[in-house]
Design a protein around this nucleic acid. Structure first.
Ligand SMILES: Nc1ncnc2c1ncn2[C@@H]1O[C@H](COP(=O)(O)OP(=O)(O)OP(=O)(O)O)[C@@H](O)[C@H]1O
Length: 804
DNA sequence: CTAGACTCATTTTTT
DNA sequence: ATGAGTCTAG
């Protein structure tokens, strides 16, 4: 940073720095130099930001903290290249982390270039903005991957799992010991490290690794048979394509003269290869990122990519952006203080001219239910006070935590959307219907065919086995056998009719043109009766499924309109590549709920980070430790999403996966500076108000000491808790009362008998149909008068007995 | 072949 | 709480 410290910039929201938040370094990014001020593409940019936009030739790396304008600079740079440097849009490749980010960036580029419609416009339309995965898929479709045809199918986690399950079973391994998920995890790690089955085998140490190597090879073989690629393969096979076909590499290098990568800190090795192959050593590779925001190491993200950029590109220009435009001083200071606890990190300066802002708040509740209620209530007040719902976000470590908050918000009629969790395109009903389309594109997609068989009445395991035998002996694909009228002739009765009907359906579908997509889907639904069957059910869950199928039809219609040439193939690619976080929130004006991971790159006025408990954030799974530094970065990302307000919440008791557990606040609480953290407020009122103090024995003292808060210096404690008595005592007392109450609640009435009427606080009155299981897992199946039949865990459901 | 009952494991984060 | 896998009866 060479710019002199002068004034405080010109943004509307900015105010003079408050001296009480002196970070101890001098130079903020310089304000815009007056000279180029009239260029709208540079308007409002600081000097280093301008340099990042206009320094167009050669490798450039921007390393900068949150909210410093990295994404903004990248977007402007694309516009600059097109509008000022006269670069043809199709020579530019911009890589984002999610498809949603790609969509947004495309729109912003279009807006900067003055296009009306980003999909049709002139200049912006040619810029390729995509994630690595969609970019690779696209290129592989165009040039054809090694060992596959361009019609290959993209396998998602479900397909992978089903496939691996078969590989494991074929080898007659103990399914209890060989879990598809964990084997696939090992394989994925290998793929991210660019290790193929052979190498894996040769490097395997020990019996288990050798078995995994064997499964890896089997899995690869299966995918080859199915003409399928998994997510990791998209990257890998593209690398192989580039390495094995110099003419393709040359063509693409020539085409993509400018390669830009956002969120570079979370790229993995194959992605790194791709970027470097495309750009060449001194090519125009522009990467932006923040090592402190790297949160995907578990997925193969490799910090070396960003840390060693300059070694890889000796000619690289490094640009630092050190001014944060997003957050208040309090938020920024808390985040900085937190992240400085990471030992493996290079120090970075970051300051803001934004107002000091309110301190962060830590609230603590007795139960997770109260936590959710209180947050919902507060959100309601904030909205009434004028905050836009879409400017409020609730973040949690794991999707499982969203439920209580959803319920609490729904109860108050607060508009909200859950981002991620169960991606639309991965829902069973959606995948069922899409299986038919997959087969039309790729007849070798046997996994899809199995799905179709499973859906077909009259075709069970025996029939499938019979067809498989026929296929194997004739050396043909399963679908070929199905489509062969002679094959059906070998079956009898119901099976024969079912197979014949399926064959006719496929013949009809094949006669349809590949675009538009919607009519194809409609034919599938009509002929299989799938939608009707769902609609015909009185199970509300099935109705929801039916709605999803209907939404799929709408999605197809929309796709047809937007990409008339896309066809089934394009539609399926979208389905495979879009993730949960990509789904645009249907309700623009709604509170957003999402995981901390999904929050990356976003910004909100007010942020609630819930489930701020030890064991939850840092998430600790039994035995398997956690990557503490990465967990800390995750919290850092969460906090730095906020412009004005950050609230962290913990609960004394948390009910997760069927069991109640005492919880402690996150250890990270201690790492937030006291002068910008408010802990006294509502939390203690919430907890204290309802528990009578008890006295307890010294043994219990030891047991419960520390449950209140992680240890901290007494001085700090006194300051933040005005009327603190003997703390361990209070903590102990509180917990005693709570646990007693919980015990009482669960132990209350003896269990209801079959046929007895009961009342549930949420579902209302109902009748016990049957009881099953024993011990803590004992369940009752209850038919509720209004809410249908549900199975409830007795220890968990607060049932009131009403008698027979 | 199907439907229903029952047991068991399962939950981190996602392109 | 939910889903997948297994077993049994029809
Ligand atoms: N020079 C500027 N003047 C005014 N606002 C700016 C400036 N630069 C960036 N901003 C604003 O700061 C916010 C953060 O920008 P951006 O999202 O590009 O940052 P980032 O570095 O990519 O953040 P993160 O790493 O946290 O995702 C945006 O609201 C952006 O509009």
């Amino acid at each position: 940073m060479t710019s002199p410290p002068t004034d405080t910039g010109g943004g509307a929201v900015e105010s003079d720095a408050d001296l009480s938040f002196d970070f101890g370094y001098a130079a903020p990014d310089a304000p815009p130099a007056p000279t180029d001020d009239d260029d709208p593409l540079l308007a409002g940019l600081t000097e280093p930001q301008r340099e990042a936009v206009t320094h167009t030739e050669g490798p450039v790396i921007v390393v900068a903290g949150p909210g410093s304008g990295k994404t903004r600079v990248l977007t402007r740079r694309v516009a600059w290249l097109v509008a000022r440097e006269g670069v043809a849009p199709w020579r530019i490749l911009a890589i984002t982390f999610t498809n949603k980010a790609a969509d947004e960036m495309r729109e912003r580029i279009a807006a900067l270039l003055g296009d009306r419609d980003p999909t049709r416009g002139h200049s912006a339309a040619g810029v390729l903005v995509a994630t690595f995965h969609s970019f690779c898929a696209r290129m592989l479709r165009r040039y054809g991957p090694p060992e596959r045809t361009p019609e290959f199918t993209i396998y998602d986690a479900d397909d992978q799992k089903a496939c691996m399950k078969r590989v494991i079973r074929a080898r007659q391994l103990d399914p209890a010991q060989w879990k598809p998920r964990s084997v696939l995890g090992a394989i994925s790690a290998a793929k991210n490290a660019m290790i193929d089955p052979e190498q894996f085998r040769s490097e395997a140490i020990g019996w288990r690794d050798r078995q995994i190597a064997e499964l890896y090879a089997g899995y690869e073989e299966a995918l080859r048979d199915y003409n399928a690629l998994d997510f990791d393969d998209l990257l890998l096979y593209f690398v192989r394509l580039l390495e094995s076909r110099p003419e393709v590499l040359a063509e693409l290098r020539d085409r993509f003269r400018y390669v830009l990568v956002d969120e570079y800190q979370d790229t993995n090795r194959p992605q790194y290869r791709i970027a470097n192959l495309l750009a060449g050593e001194n090519g125009n590779l522009f990467v932006v990122g923040d090592p402190d925001q790297s949160i995907y190491r578990w997925r193969g993200a490799d910090l070396r990519n960003i840390l060693e950029f300059e070694r890889d590109h000796p000619a690289a220009r490094e640009i630092r952006l050190e001014r944060n435009y997003r957050s208040s001083q309090a938020i920024l200071r808390a985040a900085q203080h937190l992240i400085e606890h990471n030992e493996q990190r290079r120090p970075k300066t970051l300051h803001t001219e934004n107002p000091p802002g309110e301190p962060l708040r830590w609230l603590r509740f007795r139960t997770d239910e109260e936590e959710a209620e209180a947050i919902a209530q507060e959100i309601e007040q904030r909205i009434e006070a004028g905050t836009r719902p879409s400017e409020i976000a609730v973040f949690y470590r794991a999707n499982a935590l969203s439920r209580r908050f959803e319920e609490a918000l729904r109860k108050r009629w607060i508009r909200h959307v859950v981002i991620g969790s169960v991606p639309f395109w991965q829902r069973r009903e959606v995948k069922d219907v899409l299986a038919f389309l997959r087969l039309l594109v790729n007849p070798d997609d046997t996994q899809a065919l199995r799905r179709v068989f499973a859906l077909t009445e009259g075709v069970g395991p025996a029939t499938v086995r019979r067809l498989e035998e026929l296929a194997a002996s004739a050396g043909r694909s399963l679908l070929a056998v199905l489509l062969d009228p002679d094959a059906a002739a070998r079956l009898r009765g119901r099976q024969r009719r079912a197979i014949a009907a399926l064959r006719e359906l496929f013949e009809t579908l094949r006669a349809l043109p590949p675009a538009p997509v919607r009519p194809v889907l409609e034919t599938v639904l009509e002929r299989t009766g799938y939608l009707e069957q769902l609609r015909g059910s009185d199970d509300p869950q099935e109705q929801a499924r039916a709605d999803n199928v209907a939404a799929l039809l709408d999605g197809a219609a929309e796709f047809d309109e937007r990409e008339p040439e896309g066809g089934i193939r394009g539609f399926l690619d979208r389905a495979a590549l879009l993730s949960g976080t990509d789904e645009q929130a249907g309700d623009e004006e709604a509170v957003r709920l999402m995981t901390l991971h999904a929050a990356k790159g976003l910004e909100f006025d007010e942020v609630y980070i819930v489930g701020f408990d030890q064991r939850l954030l840092p998430l600790e799974r039994d035995e398997t430790g956690c990557d503490l530094e990465e967990e800390r970065r995750l919290l850092y990302v969460g906090i730095t999403r906020a412009r004005h307000r950050v609230t962290l919440t913990s609960s004394l008791l948390r009910r997760t996966w069927g069991q109640e557990r005492a919880a402690q606040p996150s250890r990270f609480l201690r790492e937030l500076p006291d002068d910008v953290l408010e802990r006294a407020g509502g939390a203690h009122a919430a907890v204290r108000g309802r528990c009578a103090p008890l006295t307890a024995s010294p043994q219990e003292h030891d047991r419960w000491d520390g449950i209140d808060e992680p240890p901290e210096p007494p001085a700090a404690r006194r300051r933040t808790r005005p009327n603190a008595g003997p703390v361990p005592n209070r903590a102990r007392a509180r917990l005693q009362a709570l646990l007693a109450e919980t015990r009482a609640r669960t132990a209350t009435a003896a269990e209801p008998a079959v046929g007895e009427r009961v009342r549930h606080p949420v579902f209302g009155d109902g009748q016990v149909l049957r009881l099953q299981g024993s011990g803590p897992g004992r369940r009752a199946v209850i038919e509720f008068d209004r809410r249908g039949t549900k199975t409830l865990l007795l220890q968990y459901a607060r049932l009131e007995r009403l008698g027979s």
